[in-house]
């Protein structure tokens, strides 16, 4: 199996350290189009699509394997192995922040630095933990997604009645970015919004940057702060950017925050303080 083809891996830039950018739920590697190139002069940039998203190999989609975030983390480690990445920097947005943590915890040689953009270990409020959503909110989201009442799928009736050979047709018509297979997207939503990886945070040994946006509906301040609190040696940066996608809405601020973090880490590695 060609891992690089499966995950539509793109590699560019020059530098001794690799920077692996992972997109979150709902999009693909084009998410990083305003951010990743900024690091190409100093790093080896690795972009990829999770299986089921973007231009990944849909045939490789296995509902059982991708029934948990660990399945996606395995893919990340396979990509690392294929590209021989060690001591790399993992930049994960949204759900991929957790995928990166799982990968880094499983094989500690691959990533020495984690950049978590809008991370959330658990979206549902429980046991006194504030995840931002009540269980019924998540249930409502997943039900509406299941019935194709959200987004583009329902906008074209034939999609409901069949068109099984080209379910992505509806999106292709209007969207040139972030194409996802509707069925896989639904499953990904279930896996993402039902995940609870709080217990994995304390095991992180990589140096970690938590980038928190203002007014992020998906990952509110409390959640980002929790992640920072639970991960040893983590740095927390509160951004001016609003929403859940600072990599798109505020790429400059995002780049600056990451660059600053990496420079400090490099200095630390060199023994400066």
């Amino acid at each position: 199996m060609d891992v690089l083809a499966r995950n539509n891996v793109k590699v560019f830039g020059s530098g001794s350290r690799a920077m692996v950018f992972a997109h979150g739920y709902g999009c693909d590697q084009t998410m990083w189009r305003f951010v990743a190139p900024a690091f190409a002069e100093t790093h080896r940039i690795v972009l990829f699509d999770h299986v089921g998203c973007g231009a990944s190999d849909l045939e490789a989609y296995d509902a059982e394997k991708y029934g948990t975030l660990s399945g996606y983390a395995e893919d990340v480690l396979e990509i690392c192995a294929a590209l021989d990445i060690t001591d790399g920097i993992f930049v994960g947005h949204s759900v991929s922040a957790m995928i990166g943590i799982l990968a880094a915890n499983k094989d500690r040689t691959r990533f020495s630095d984690l950049v978590l953009v809008g991370p959330s270990p658990c979206y549902v409020n429980k046991d006194g933990y504030i995840g931002g959503f009540a269980q019924e909110d998540i249930d409502d989201l997943l039900e509406t997604l299941d019935d194709n009442y959200l987004g583009w799928s329902s906008a074209i009736a034939p999609v409901i009645m069949g068109n099984a050979d080209r379910p992505e047709l509806a999106q292709e018509l209007t969207n040139s970015f972030c194409r996802t297979d509707p069925e896989i997207s639904k499953h990904f939503a279930h896996v993402t919004f039902r995940a609870d990886n709080r217990a994995d945070l304390q095991n992180v040994t990589a140096r970690t940057l938590v980038l928190q946006c203002s007014e992020d509906v998906i990952a509110p301040y409390d959640v980002g702060e929790y992640v920072h609190r639970m991960i040893p040696r983590s740095r927390f940066v509160m951004m001016n950017a609003t929403g859940h996608c600072p990599n798109l809405s505020a790429p400059e601020e995002t780049i600056t925050a990451i660059r600053s973090f990496l420079m400090d880490q490099a200095a630390e590695t060199r023994g400066e303080t």
């Binding site: 709902g26 009442y149 209007t174 509906v217 998906i218 929403g243 996608c245 809405s249």
Partner: peptide, 25 residues
């Protein structure tokens, strides 16, 4: 709530990238 999550994860990234979105339910 569902629409808000969908908007943040799908709609807004797309809008920022291609400058428009059409007929989103």
């Amino acid at each position: 709530i569902g629409g808000r999550i969908y908007s943040e994860t799908h709609l807004m990234p797309l809008l920022r990238m291609q400058g428009f979105v059409r007929e989103v339910a």
